[in-house]
Amino acid sequence: MVDLPKPWDAALVRKWLDRRHAAARLDQSAADRRGYDARDDFDKAAAEEWVCRTLRDDDAVSEQAAFAIRLKELIAQDEYSATGLYDDLRFERHVRTYLRKLAKMTKANEGFEKTFRHQ
């Protein structure tokens, strides 16, 4: 038996991006309340929030190939602008890491059905 690849579901990807955006905002607030020791967690959540906010309304989400190309463009980008961060370099590293995770999910077309806050 041959397993056919499942079709790209743009609505599911947008829903996943919306849910991850909301979860990242909550994670940022929680890290901010924890203070100085949670700076890395804050920057990590800020990176996830930036990626999800940037991509959730992007037209490239409609097609798997276009979304993969958009992710590669973002990974190749030199700088990512955001305010209120503790460490810009750490933020940029987290953005690229999150973009690579999304690129792997996009290539395999799996993982977007997991919409719980904690993954």
Rank of each mutant, 00 (worst) to 15 (best):
D41S: 14
A11S: 08
D9C: 01
A11N: 02
D59S: 09
E49A: 06
D9R: 07
D43T: 14
A30E: 13
A47G: 01
A10Q: 07
D9S: 02
D18E: 11
Q28N: 03
A60H: 10
A31T: 04
D59K: 11
L12K: 02
D57P: 02
D18K: 06
W50C: 01
A24T: 05
A10H: 02
D59N: 07
D57R: 09
R25K: 11
V51P: 00
L12S: 01
F42R: 00
D18R: 07
A23M: 05
T54F: 04
D18Q: 10
S29N: 09
D57W: 02
D37Y: 15
A23K: 03
R19D: 13
D57V: 00
D9K: 04
A38M: 15
P7S: 11
C52G: 00
G35M: 12
F42P: 00
A47H: 01
R34K: 15
T54R: 13
D59T: 06
A31C: 06
D40N: 14
A47Y: 04
R53T: 03
R56Y: 01
A22N: 09
V61F: 08
E63T: 14
L4R: 10
D18F: 01
R14P: 05
W8H: 08
D27A: 14
D41I: 06
A46I: 03
R20N: 11
